[in-house]
């Protein structure tokens, strides 16, 4: 899927900005999501690594 398919009929600049907005939203969600996992699973994982 490209920016043009995302917003059919939009101007090239708006389509490009939409792509950037989608990627920014994905990056923010992934950062927060993996951050949550890190907080929940990180201490257990580190503890396991230290016991190896």
């Amino acid at each position: 899927m490209t920016g043009t398919e995302l917003l059919p009929g939009a101007s090239p600049s708006v389509a490009a900005l939409a792509v950037i907005a989608v990627v920014l939203a994905e990056a923010a969600l992934l950062y927060a999501g993996y951050g949550f996992l890190e907080d929940r699973l990180g201490p257990t994982l580190f503890d396991r690594l230290r016991r190896i």
């Binding site: 490209t2 920016g3 989608v22 990627v23």
Partner: peptide, 9 residues
């Protein structure tokens, strides 16, 4: 590149 519509999301 987004203006050219060539980014594969």
């Amino acid at each position: 590149y987004g203006r050219a519509g060539v980014i594969d999301l």
